[in-house]
Amino acid sequence: MRSNKERLAQAGLLELGGILIVAPLSAMLTGHDLASMGSLAVVMSTLAVIWSTVWNWMFDRWVPTRQRNMLQRITQALGFELGLVLVTVFLVAAWLEIGLWQALLLDLGFVAFFLVWAMIFNPLFDAVMTRLLARKAARERKHPSPHSMR
């Protein structure tokens, strides 16, 4: 099981890495300046973290088990993405002064990017954490702390 500290680090690094990649990429693709796209990416990332917390809390109330079937997991993921797009498409349109259709397409591009980025980032994060935790456990076996001797 992950600690809250590890979950926070994973979410923070996922979002920070994504912002550092998506801001210049989206600026190049859309012709908008890096400052606009970077600040938009930060705001959208912040909203995604908040919405994820709210959505998963609600979904846990509707489906109160950790043993979810594939349909429940797909529903959870699609509900998150749909809710996020419904909120952010209007933000994107206003922020960049573009139409709703263009904003929807750009928003879906952000969603697709973060889906791929998460599929790359999460296994790398897990591999690094596994190594770090194994090293920590080995150090503790070699040099037990006074607290672990009780």
Rank of each mutant, 00 (worst) to 15 (best):
D107A: 12
W55E: 06
I19F: 04
M119C: 15
W55M: 09
R141W: 05
F114G: 07
S52W: 00
M37K: 10
L108W: 07
A127F: 04
S148T: 03
V22E: 09
A11H: 06
S26E: 01
G79R: 00
F80T: 11
I21D: 06
F110D: 02
S145G: 14
A27C: 05
I120L: 13
L96M: 06
S39W: 03
M119R: 11
A11E: 09
W62Y: 12
A134D: 10
R66F: 14
T75I: 14
L105E: 12
V49H: 05
L82A: 08
R2D: 13
A93K: 04
K5E: 15
T75W: 06
S52Y: 05
R141E: 15
A41V: 00
L25R: 00
A134P: 07
H32V: 04
L96Y: 02
G38K: 06
M70A: 13
A93T: 06
L84E: 03
L29R: 05
L132A: 09
G109F: 14
R2I: 13
S26Y: 11
F125S: 09
G38Q: 01
V92P: 00
M1G: 13
L78G: 06
A103R: 03
P24G: 00
N4D: 07
V43S: 15
A11N: 10
S45M: 02
L14N: 05
F80M: 12
A103M: 12
T75Y: 04
L29A: 12
L71M: 11
D107T: 15
R7T: 03
A27D: 03
H32A: 09
G79I: 04
R61G: 06
V128R: 09
V85A: 14
L91T: 07
A48R: 01
S52H: 11
D60M: 13
A134E: 14
M37Y: 01
L100V: 14
L133I: 05
L47F: 09
H32S: 01
M1F: 08
F125Q: 01
F114Q: 02
L14P: 02
S36P: 00
D33F: 04
G31A: 06
L86G: 12
P24V: 01
P24L: 11
N4C: 07
Q67R: 15
G99W: 08
Q72K: 14
K136A: 10
A94V: 03
N69Y: 10
K136R: 15
V22N: 04
F59G: 08
T130L: 14
L8H: 02
W95S: 00
S145R: 14
A94S: 07
T75V: 11
P123H: 08
W55A: 11
T30F: 09
L115Y: 08
E140T: 07
M1I: 14
E6P: 02
T130E: 13
F121H: 05
Q67Y: 05
T30M: 08
L8D: 08
A77N: 06
W101Y: 10
P144G: 03
F110C: 04
A48Q: 09
L25Y: 00
A137L: 12
I21E: 04
